[in-house]
Design a protein around this nucleic acid. Structure first.
Lengths: 174, 174
DNA sequence: GACCTTCTAGTCAGGTATGACTATACTAGT
DNA sequence: ACTAGTATAGTCATACCTGACTAGAAGGTC
């Protein structure tokens, strides 16, 4: 859950930025993975500020609308790690946005990341089991198709996860 | 887009129902595919009513809270087919919810369905191409992983689509 | 027959997301 | 030197979603 907060915090982990910069980066580079809109990012920044997870500095330059520069606080860092861990260990979303956590995996040690992904893998297996046993009580093919679609995505995720865990393992022994 | 409206309208296509019934069905049978909450379904029903897509009849029984029975109107049927067609031809969402359209595919002729899915397939191929060429400018593996994840899901979708189209083709020649 | 739980049926306040909008600065062409 | 178009930087009204709540009926159990 709350993949959007994770994304914004993650971007602030590398450097302090103002809202426009964050949006620009998401639009240019992450449009494939996140569909978050401008106004949403701004409202998330405001929320994070209210929770004390970011500090704001206003920078005036001439007559322009002033820039609000956001930097992450200790509390924000805590939240970031919490969200990251739960994103990596969580398996409900089969969406790319649901796997935003992957993007920030370098902030954790390889072994931590591996452990979390193993938890996710286990949950994924349970989901697959639950999905496999759905009876196709209908005469049409529709309902059946949509369950097979979900099953295919879940299995794709499982394969990806298994490979990724393997990759992390190989990396750390090299 | 608007997969939720599609889901509610689709359920009303088979028979008139009251809100509780719709929610109950979603919770019991479609929890795997849709995560729509109770209150959301009710608010969608209200919206559809405002747009003249459903008719409401109130049914009182003793002292109970009265049932609001919703039935789909001609206008609602139009909207249903519009949403269904665009859901089947659309390729942006890689999510199970994004493929709610599949569930109602039996409402279209096999050849119509096939055509729409072919459009989706073409779009999917474009997305895959766009995703493949993303450079991994980072030193970490995170960003790279998350793009590979999306790519894997897209390719899974492509395979599924291809198979489904094939299936529809075989079915109609038999 | 009193109490607790679950099922039925839905509402509502408050949080979230976003399309449309405002406003300045810079850049290129004519 | 003027204009059109784009980049910068963000706000706001409105629509949307959902957790928490209300309320009666039915069923079980001690």
């Amino acid at each position: 859950m709350d993949e959007r907060e994770l994304l914004v915090l993650g971007l602030l982990m590398t450097q302090s930025q103002h809202g426009y910069q964050i949006n620009d980066f998401i639009e240019r580079n992450l449009g494939q993975v996140s569909d978050m809109k401008k106004a949403t990012a701004y409202s998330i920044l405001k929320r994070l500020d209210k929770q004390g997870c970011v500090d704001v500095t206003v920078e005036q330059e001439g007559n322009r609308p002033p820039r609000q520069i956001y930097s992450i606080t200790d509390r924000g860092r805590e939240l970031f790690y919490d969200l990251l861990r739960s994103s990596l260990a969580h398996a409900e979303n089969v969406t790319p946005a649901g796997e935003i956590g992957l993007m920030f995996i370098d902030h954790l040690s390889r072994s931590d990341a591996k452990e979390l992904l193993k938890i996710k893998l286990e949950k994924m297996n349970q989901l697959i089991e639950a999905c496999s046993s759905i009876p196709s009580h209908d005469e049409g093919i529709g309902v059946n198709l949509s369950f097979r679609h979900r099953l295919a995505l879940l299995e794709c995720n499982r394969t990806f996860l298994t490979e990724t865990i393997q990759e992390l393992e190989n990396e750390s022994t090299v």
